[in-house]
Write a protein that binds this DNA or RNA. Structure first.
Lengths: 249, 249
DNA sequence: CGATCTGTTGAAGTGAGTCAATAGTGGTGG
DNA sequence: CCACCACTATTGACTCACTTCAACAGATCG
């Protein structure tokens, strides 16, 4: 049930600072890294007109494989994991979304994966049909979405290499290095680096077990390549080495 | 070097039958399953005007990761494997292209994977810049390409589940079932089912070793779920069972 | 302050990998 | 047509990276 959870229509309040503003999107903290970056202020206003918001609690299931896609979403704060499962409970996280990331484009009408909130999460929401109209009007948005999907595909190919051919140590280093890159790109804090996923989820993302993930973290700690403040706060002590391990060198 | 190999400009010869025709594309054997299916005959003619052909020998490297993308291609006959490699020789095939499949869309300017011909292969070729012009003119082509990329993404997610969570037996069954589906969809011969990949490539596609692939084929043979005519001709004897194993049941 | 998650560590088991030998298969040329 | 070679596939014996099962430790919270 796409977007069934607690939602509100867009109001004249800044989603980040909470104070009233003329244009919500113009003030949005993640706009510069999201799809909306392609738009100027008048186009933004048009998008805003059809926008709503959705809030999720930590661990709250959000979409299920097979659900019809009725809305598109942009993550404002928090995060989501996207995953596919086998009937016996085995699961593979195919990706996770952090602030600025987009969900729900599918030209196909139903979701091909499930999604769940990693923590308290806020999304802005667009009805697909209305979004389609804006799409058709602004060619560059179309372009932008093609790029988004294509980037996802590139990431997926990279991840297939990881899942098919890398060792546990290589997988974890790749995960850390990628997270480091992303955090830098969006201007976040990298020391300590905050891990958006729990051990179980990291395991499901990297195609390993929790125990192996934990053991590998310990190895990295003992080799002094990282320092763990808390389970989800990592100081990267030797980035070059981490990167080298990540690409199998 | 993108499309550097033996190529010719489009001539008034049917690529499939070899006889002269007014419109090549209109006669193309794989048009109904390829991107061009979205176009009517006048649009087709426009596309034809910018089309060339490329021929590859079996095993011929075609594109390398990092190459600039200068052309887009459509597989007419034969096949390609797409793969990513690690410096030490480990490789992961992220997908393979058969007649009707498309390559070279990247909104990004360089290839993020390498490609090599699986056998004698024929492609039709479009200069990217010219293609872009046709794109901008025909909205439905744009839509069509978004769908193509998105379908690739769905396939990639499915494959991540396979690589991360499935056993060797489940992987091979998934491979066979998927190939069966595709072959049916394009109206090909399914008894025997022809495998477009050698054992080594199947291994690199499924994240296994040649030996494991071979052993697993032998198991399937001994359990009488398949019969092997030659190494690359498979009779599926119990499709239901194969499908059940494929999704972990 | 017990209850419940989440993470870590240890010991034992196993599915797939590695190494090595053998067997088909196809192509070439005398 | 066969002998030879190169390549691809199969099979066996052994190893090992990761899993499984199990116990324990830390954190969080009503």
């Amino acid at each position: 049930m796409d977007g069934s959870s607690d939602t509100v229509r867009a109001e004249a309040l800044c989603p980040v600072h909470g104070n009233p503003v003329e244009s919500i999107c113009a003030q949005c903290g993640i706009r510069h890294i999201s799809v909306c970056a392609a738009l100027d202020s008048s186009e933004l206003r048009e998008l805003e007109a059809i926008m709503g918001r959705t809030y999720l609690a930590a661990g709250q299931p959000f979409v299920f494989e097979g659900d019809p896609v009725e809305h598109a979403f942009n993550v404002v704060s928090g995060g989501l994991k996207l995953f596919k499962g086998l009937r016996d409970g085995r699961a593979q996280i195919t990706g996770y979304l952090l602030p600025g990331d987009f969900l729900g484009l599918p030209p196909r009408g139903t979701y091909t994966f499930s999604a769940e909130a990693l923590e308290k999460t806020e999304l802005c929401r667009f009805p697909r049909v209305a979004l389609k109209r804006v799409f058709d009007k602004y060619e560059k948005l179309q372009d932008r979405f093609l790029t988004v999907v294509h980037d996802d595909l590139i990431a997926a190919q990279e991840h297939m290499l990881l899942l098919g051919r890398k060792t546990a140590m290589e997988r974890l280093c790749t995960f850390l290095v990628r997270l480091l890159h992303r955090t830098e790109r969006v201007g976040g804090v990298t020391a300590p680096l905050r891990l958006p996923l729990h051990r179980t989820d990291i395991a499901d993302y990297l195609g390993l077990t929790v125990e192996t993930v934990s053991r590998t973290f310990s190895q990295l700690r003992k080799s002094e390549l990282i320092r763990l403040e808390k389970a989800d706060r990592v100081f990267v002590l030797d980035r070059a080495r981490l990167e080298a391990i990540a690409d199998g060198t």
